[in-house]
Simulated assay, not measured.
Amino acid sequence: MKRTHLPLNGLRVLDAAARHLSFTRAADELAVTPAAVGQQIRALEDMLGVVLFRRTPKGLELTDEAGAGLDALRSGFLQFEEAVRAMQQGQSSFRLTIAVPRDFAAKWLHHRLIGYAADNPDIRYTLVSGDSDIDFTEANLDCAIRLGDGPGDLEGAMIGPQRFVTVAAPGYAGDARISWPGCSSDQTADCEGTDTGTVMQVADAGLGIDAAIAGFGSVSAPWLLAERDIAEGRLVALGEARPARRAFWIVAPTPQWRQKKVKALVAALTQP
């Protein structure tokens, strides 16, 4: 019989009924009705062409045909359990491969992961550079972090507030601006003053924040990237943080998203 044709549900019912010699107790174990157990056994008997149980005055009794296969059946189920444990053990190893923008890693993720790693000392990370165009298959990724207006066609959860803020070094009184690709002229909904007074163009918001700290001017950036430098006095906010269209999202295809190790990471990164 081909593996794809193995009646696994019926064999599982047979194992339970043989151990209990009772359809009722087998039904309790499997959380189904006794009638469902009887139907599975009859279907299995029809498929195999043998009788598996007989009713006697003393109760349910296994036939010789059923008894002949029980040892191999139970050995097979034990091997299934070992296979499941092995796969779960591999999943619980906390080997995570994450695609993440360089500035997000430097300005926020590393600091958050320190605490997470302290609570999970066996954790191992592989961080690869990545932004919006991620090929999960080629990169063998568990998840990715990106700046955008939603998860797109992936599973996802938003990290931190959906806000941008304009910042500069303490005491800076000029009107020079620092721009980065995420605050270009077509992103004015999130940013301020992207078309005028630009004295420096940089590759990402993190470099823009560093340039602002050095005194080159002001920059509009995601609040999540600027908040630590603001809190520690290297930057000041020029006005209130404002609602934005984009935020940082942790995303993954559905199979990766269902992994326990990814769920745990998502919970750690999205908590306040």
Rank of each mutant, 00 (worst) to 15 (best):
L78F: 04
V236A: 04
L127S: 07
V165I: 14
G206R: 03
A27K: 12
V84N: 11
G171H: 10
G215K: 10
R95T: 14
Q271I: 13
L14P: 03
T270S: 06
K263S: 12
A189F: 09
A86F: 08
I41F: 06
T4M: 10
I134V: 11
K107C: 11
L238F: 05
W223M: 14
A157F: 06
R246K: 11
A17C: 01
A231I: 02
V165R: 05
P121I: 10
K2I: 06
D122Q: 15
V167S: 06
P181G: 11
V165P: 06
E45G: 09
M87D: 15
I134G: 01
N140Q: 14
G156P: 02
D190Y: 08
L235W: 12
F216C: 09
V13C: 03
A241E: 14
G197S: 13
A226Y: 08
Q91D: 14
D135A: 05
L269W: 04
A139L: 15
A189H: 13
G217L: 13
A18W: 10
L265W: 06
E192L: 14
F23S: 04
L11A: 01
L48F: 13
M87H: 15
L62C: 08
I98P: 00
L78H: 08
K107L: 10
G115R: 03
S93L: 15
V51T: 15
S184M: 05
N9Q: 13
V251H: 01
A35D: 11
G233L: 09
V167D: 05
L113A: 00
